[in-house]
Each structure stands twice: as C-alpha cells, then as structure tokens.
Write a protein that binds this DNA or RNA. Sequence first.
DNA 1: ATGAAAGCGCTAACAC
DNA 2: GTGTTAGCGCTTTCAT
Lengths: 340, 340
Amino acid sequence: MSNIRKVAELAGVSVATVSRTLKSPDIVSPATRDKVRRAIEASGYRPNQMAVQFRSRRSHNLAVLVPTIANTFFARVIAGVQQAAREQGYGVLLCNTLGQEEDEIQYAGMVAARQADGVIQLRAFNPFPDDAVEPGRPLPMVNACEVLDDAPCPTLRIDNRAAARTLTEHLIALGHRRIAMIQGPRRSPLTRDRVAGYRDALAAAGIAPDETLLCPGDFTPASGHAAAGSLLAVESPPTAIFCESDEMAIGAISRLRQAGLSVPADVSVAGFDDIAFASYSDPALTTIAQPAEAFGRRAVEMLIAILEGRGEVAPRVVLPHELVIRDSTAPPRDDIRDRG
Amino acid sequence: MSNIRKVAELAGVSVATVSRTLKSPDIVSPATRDKVRRAIEASGYRPNQMAVQFRSRRSHNLAVLVPTIANTFFARVIAGVQQAAREQGYGVLLCNTLGQEEDEIQYAGMVAARQADGVIQLRAFNPFPDDAVEPGRPLPMVNACEVLDDAPCPTLRIDNRAAARTLTEHLIALGHRRIAMIQGPRRSPLTRDRVAGYRDALAAAGIAPDETLLCPGDFTPASGHAAAGSLLAVESPPTAIFCESDEMAIGAISRLRQAGLSVPADVSVAGFDDIAFASYSDPALTTIAQPAEAFGRRAVEMLIAILEGRGEVAPRVVLPHELVIRDSTAPPRDDIRDRG
DNA sequence: ATGAAAGCGCTAACAC
DNA sequence: GTGTTAGCGCTTTCAT
C-alpha cells in the first residue's frame, strides 16, 4: 500500500504539495500538479481515508436511525438519504433501531466517538444526552418523518394533521359516517396529529366521534389485519377504515376479505404513504402520497448544512403531500348508509 | 472533548494503561483498572474512534452493496446484515448501487481507501480490480443472494435451480401444461438457474417448452404488470405464471385482474421470495420462501471470519428454501385443461 | 508556490 | 503489571 510520502518522493516534491494537489489543486502550479498526478497514477496511490478523517476531524459519515428498514416507506427514505449523501461525498451508516431507545442512544454516541459527523433520526425521539454538544454549537441532527414537537434540531415532515383531515373528508364526501381509524403506535406524534386531523374532519361534518372505531396498530400488515378483525366485531361496524399506513391497509383488506366482505363495495379502506404496492394491490389503494425519497434527500442536505455551518438551516420544514384516489374507497352501500 | 492523555493524568497512570484497560482489561490489575474506569467516568471520555481505527488499521465497517434497497427482499437481507454486524461490533455502510457497475467499483474502492474492511455484494458482479489484494491474502468480500459462478470469494445462496424446479413441479402437479415464466434480468445467473430448474421440471413431465411463454422482467411490480400484459397477448395464453419475484407476481396479478381474469380460477400465479406482503395479497401467494435475514446474517459472519482470519470459511454455502403453497395456484379450469 | 515540521489520538513494541 | 516511546498517514501552520 502506497502512502503520501512515497508519492512525494516519486514526484520529487514534499508531502504537503501532494496533499495540496489533492485538496486544493488550484493553489498548486500546473506543472507541479501534473508531476504529482503522474506520481499518484504510477504508484496506484489511494489516500488512506482513516488518516484523512482522523487528521481532518471529520468522518464524512452520516448515521441514519430508522425504526425499521423492512418497511417499504422507510426503505425509500433511506434510498433518498444514500443518494444525496453520496452526491455530497458522505457515507451512510445504517442503524436499524427497531424503535429501541437504548439502541438509538448508543447509535447517536457514534457522533461523540467520531464515527459519524451527524445523525438523521426518523423517529420522534432525541437520542442525544443534554450535554452532547458544547453550548453554542448546533446539535448535529435532523429529525425527519416522525418529528418531535420540541425537537432540538431542524425537522422535516408533512402536515400530518391536514393530510389526515383531507383523507377523512374524502371518505365523508363519499357518504361515510362510520369511519374507523387503524392507528400507529399510541404515543407517536404521528398518530396524535393524524387522529387530530381525522377528528377535525368529523367535527366539521357534524359527525360524533366513536371511540370504539379507533384501533391501535404498528404500521405492519399484520397489525392492520388484526385491527380489522377487531373492527369487524364492534356492535355497529364501520363502513370505511382509514389506515395510518398502506401496509396496514393491505393487511386490513386481507382480513375483510377473509370475513367475506368486499372492498370497496362493503367497506372502503384508505391507506397512507403511497408505497409501490399501493397501486398494485386489489383494489388499488386510495392513500396519501408522502415524498419518501425527498425526505431522505432533504434531510441530508439540511444535516450537511448544519455540519458544515454554511448558512441558516430552516428549523421546521414541511413537505407537500397529496391525496391519491384509487379504487379502495367508494360510497357506502345503500342499505348501510340508510342505517347510518 | 477529552482524550486518552487527560484520562491518564486524571487516573495517575500512563496512556498505555488506559488503552489496555479499554482493550484488554484482564491484563490490568484490578486496582488500576478501577482507577482508570473512574477517571473515564469522571471525564466523560469517549475514545476517538477515528484515531482507534486509524492506528489499528481497521475501520470496523462493512460495506454492503445492494442492487436496490427499495425491494423488500433486499431490505430484509440488510436488516440481517445490520443486526449481525452490530452484534460483532461492526458498522454497516450502505451502498445502494442500482446495479451500476461503475458505482459498485467505486464503493468497493472504500476498502482500498480504508473506509471499510470488506464488502458484502448482493449482486453477481465482482467490483474489485484484479490487483485489489496482495497475492496470498483473501479478497475481503462475500457474495450473497445473486452469486457469481466463479466468484473469487465465498458465496452464499439458495439452490435456485432446485427451487424453481420444485415450484414448477407444483404447477404441473396441479394440471398445468402451459406455464409461463416472468424472469429476472436476462444476464443474471439467478435467472439462468431458475429457468434451468423450470425447464428441468417441464422436461421431466414431457412438456415441450414454449419460448413465447418466457418474459423478461426486473423484479419490480411494474415489470410483472407489463410482462403479464404481453403474456395475455400470446396466441395460446398460459394457464399458470411463475414469477421470479413476489413483487412481479403482485404486479402480474394486478394486470390479469385488469383483463377481467381471476387468480387462481382463470390463471395461477406463483412468486418467489416470500416477502411480507405475499401472505396478505389477494390471493395469498404461493411462493418459494428464501431466508432473507439469514442471508444477511451469515454473510456478515463469513466476511468477518475472512477479515479476522479465523479458521476456514466455507467457500460455497447453500441455504435452504421452502415451497409455500397458498391460494394463488390451483388446477386450471376444465375447459382450458381440455384444450391444453 | 513550495517545503519543513509539528502534531491529531491512539496502539503496540519494548523496557523495566 | 505498567511506563516510555515511536510512529500510523495525513493536514496544516509557518517559513521561505
């Protein structure tokens, strides 16, 4: 393995000149620059990044804390993270946390240990201790997707409340009045905001909320399947189900079908996220499209802006969402509506 | 930020003793060890990993080259990689290559640049130049899932030919004789092996292969959707379709339904991978289950065994697969079978 | 524009 | 069992 000294000798210059040729070629005379470049070529020299990082005190790595990469929505976010990071010369250290706070704290410790320059957190939890950073310096973190209310760092999200309201309004406009909701984890701000939007829409339409129509879930198809089962058992079942993720919607539809019900003829089902499968499922899902890749990309840009201290970073960024109406939602059956 | 020297001073020992307390506590006397640990505690010392890595010449990072993380099968493999790596004290550098060989080569260069100690390649391509490693030393790579025939490193896969044969036999046993195949990319060894297994089964059953029933795809739902469309247009359409991925199967089913066909009543469809959605799609998919997380986990174990030079590493590992029969495959309709 | 030299924080001989 | 010390390969003043 060649090193900078060998290259310097070969080129007949000092190591400083080799270093400069690599980092700021413009301050090296063209003749010297060429000499050095030929020497690099000839020796097959690759700078030892461990040394570069160590010496320059930047790892040029970003840690991304993801609740679960097995979720296709997060997979897309991460694809966006990776691409943007690569474009900016950063590596991505993947941290699949499964929502374990102790693990998230440990991963965030990679910043203190200099393994990563900053973290992108996709869950509403601050993994840094209070004294993580000297006063005056910004916390090297961006919180995206599921965002802490009082995040000590820039955040990036959609307007979940407005999105949920829009989706619920769509259901109401179709004629539904008994609208269930299969939610995300209880304590998540995501759940809280979306439930708020759902209630907003009900209230605006003069529909009294019915707590028996609120079911917990965890965003997985299995939880949607189970929740749909319990909704089937309530005294007066819903004519529409709003699921907080497409994966749960797919699970719910599967359960409804097992019960001999047809979607949307008997029950309408709507999702959230607009994952790739949403348009291929049967029926194709009505859902809220979230800009998954953009979440990743923007989060990286914001984080690097913090790390490299260039300019102000917008503290609270809200990305656009979109209601996508497909085939899983329709007016309720007449006999059901009459009864409602 | 504290450093090892400060801790040494605080504890009244040398820096070497601090280092030893961290790396091999057993060779330090209990009394000293405690003193050092208290000093570490008191100063909030975190070893600078960049320095550790630099000095010890190991980054303790693994680069994982994945064709596309947006595919749920690969997402699971990567979840396995991450968990195993973490357990062994390694970080995971995610490289979403989209199958671009130039990018893969560049990512593999992270090993030469000392950013990563080794790579896990999930595609059938060797991203290392011939002179990547000095003679006698093993290539720091494991090739998993889609494997090169003459991989210059240990490989990890399932027996794709046998799996495809088993799945095709299942279709034949149901009474199908016109069995189409929606394939992966043409040049992939995966495709070649699975097509071979498919042909094995046809031959064993005395069914003449029909090239018009072979359609290319790229593992995405969109490609399955398109391929099913073209299969619908052939002169004598298939009664069963074997898709090389569940995602393509889901896309294909969606297309068949658009054409007014019912699965499995009119056409049987089988997938491959057994992704989470396979059991929630309508109908639930008959498929070949692959041990996705195990792929990731084993790949990490094998790679670390190479890197740390402990023991022999099995050069060609084959993991078990399993035929999972659900509801998307059934006997062909009588009128169709009679015609066949 | 270039070179000399001082480290970055740590590990690993080597000595005691 | 512990201390001393020489670097690892590079960047970055500070001279020239």
